[in-house]
Design a protein around this nucleic acid. Structure first.
Length: 267
DNA sequence: ATGCCTAGCTCCGCTAGA
């Protein structure tokens, strides 16, 4: 099974890229973020024609997450449903979406598409909202799952976990997505029992990025950050065959500023 | 290394993204 995650920065602008990508790479489950359309306005027909089930939740002009899956979901979860202070995170429904699927090998596999808030500027109200959102997401996982549940959490976390995940840790020191508090909140999330799949395979490899600024010729100079992640629980570790950033869509005409991250599993 | 892109929304300039 080939799965992937991609912040598309508007599905309406990127639907042809997504369609081309699904076909070229034969992706089984693709998580999308920043669809930027209301739930009911998702341009799904194109993907249905390619054999995908569409799961989407979005708001007006911002946020929005989706899962395009060749396997039909048996159950879904949206936002922080079930948590008693879920109302404190009104946009969570546009940021967290999970589906439960199964096949011959795994009788239960939950896959999530996640879009963690960007955080704006460091120490702003929105920055602290981002930190709380990361902590709350761990509470959410603990409510429904355990470290032994086969679980894939993928998406745009808006956190570069280590210095090696950015093109210049000195320039970016304590800037948004790179602060110690964000890194610690991300680590605390992993302590639920999640593993950063890319670092399982490539623990020390430098210069692996999933996002490049539209400005400054950042992509041409490979001045990016690794903000998109595929996190897995331990039952899936020995089933992970490979994981890689697929850079080609970032070079297509009118690209998203993010590029897909793909993972191949032997189930 | 902060707005030099980009997208959406609301009206042709603003906010947000990261």
């Amino acid at each position: 099974m080939l799965i992937g995650t991609w912040n598309v920065n508007s599905i309406n602008m990127r639907k042809d890229h997504v369609s081309k990508f699904l076909q070229e790479f034969s992706v089984d489950v693709l998580a999308l973020q920043e669809t930027k359309v209301k739930t009911e306005n998702f341009p799904g027909l194109l993907f249905k024609k390619l054999g995908y089930e569409i799961y989407h939740h979005g708001g007006k002009g911002r946020n929005g997450i989706a899962l395009l899956s060749k396997i039909k979901a048996e159950d879904t979860k949206i936002g922080f449903e079930g948590l008693k202070d879920a109302d404190f995170f009104p946009d969570a429904k546009e940021r967290i979406l999970g589906i439960k699927i199964s096949n011959e090998v795994l009788k239960e596999l939950w896959i999530f598409s996640v879009y963690i808030p960007n955080g704006g500027s460091v120490n702003s109200d929105y920055y602290f909202y981002k930190l709380q959102f990361l902590w709350k997401f761990r509470d959410f996982l603990e409510l429904y799952f355990s470290k032994d549940t086969p679980l894939i959490i993928m998406g745009d976390f808006n956190v570069a976990p280590e210095d090696m995940d950015v093109y210049d840790p000195e320039i970016l020191k304590e800037t948004i997505c790179c602060t110690e508090r964000e890194k610690n909140a991300f680590k605390a999330l992993l302590e639920f029992g999640l593993f950063d799949a890319l670092r399982l395979k490539y623990p020390d490899k430098q210069g692996i990025f999933t996002w490049w600024d539209y400005q400054f010729f950042a992509f041409q100079k490979n001045q990016g950050m690794r903000l998109d992640h595929i996190l897995i629980t331990h039952p899936l570790i020995d089933k992970l065959e490979d994981i890689w950033v697929e850079k080609t869509p970032r070079g297509w005409k009118k690209p998203s500023d993010h590029t897909p991250l793909l993972a191949k599993f032997n189930f």
